Amino acid sequence: ALNRGDKVRIKRTESYWYGDVGTVASVEKSGILYPVIVRFDRVNYNGFSGSASGVNTNNFAENELELVQAAA
């Protein structure tokens, strides 16, 4: 299972961040479909780089994520 702070690569092909590595911000335990919230260094097309207006978190299912580096 994934944990907060883990570095993960995104495998959801239609995602803006496909192939990117993000950090797990939190994992919901309530049984929702996309329980893993991942935070990225770059914002998506809703904002400009360096601006706070873009979105830099997204929810994924565990099977859409590949663990790159476990949290220390």
Rank of each mutant, 00 (worst) to 15 (best):
N58C: 15
Q69M: 12
S51H: 09
S26C: 13
L65W: 01
L67F: 06
V38G: 00
E14L: 07
A72L: 10
N63G: 09
A1D: 08
V38C: 02
V21L: 06
I32E: 14
S51N: 11
R12E: 04
S30T: 13
D20G: 03
E14I: 06
V21C: 05
Y45E: 15
T57G: 05
Y34P: 04
N3I: 14
A71C: 12
L2T: 02
I37A: 10
Y16Q: 06
A25T: 13
E66P: 03
F60D: 02
V68D: 01
A70Q: 11
V8H: 01
Y34T: 05
R42C: 10
R9M: 09
K29G: 12
P35I: 13
F40K: 00
R39I: 14
V24N: 00
N56M: 07
V36C: 02
V36A: 00
V8R: 01
A61D: 06
D20K: 11
V24Q: 00
S51P: 12
V24E: 00
K7Y: 05
E14D: 14
G54R: 04
R12T: 07
V21M: 04
P35A: 08
V43F: 15
Y18L: 03
Q69D: 08
Y45W: 12
E62R: 14
W17F: 04
R4K: 12
G47K: 05
T23Y: 08
A61V: 03
R9I: 09
G47E: 15
R39K: 13
R9N: 03
S53R: 03
V24P: 01
S49H: 07
E28N: 10
L67M: 06
G31V: 08
T13H: 09
I10E: 02
L33M: 09
V27Q: 01
S49P: 15
G22Y: 05
G47T: 08
R9Y: 06
T23V: 13
A1T: 14
S30F: 07
K11G: 04
V68N: 01
N46A: 07
Y18M: 03
A71I: 11
S30K: 13
Y45F: 09
V68F: 04
N58G: 15
Y45C: 15
E28L: 14
I10S: 01
A71S: 10
A71D: 09
Y18F: 11
R39H: 13
D6F: 02
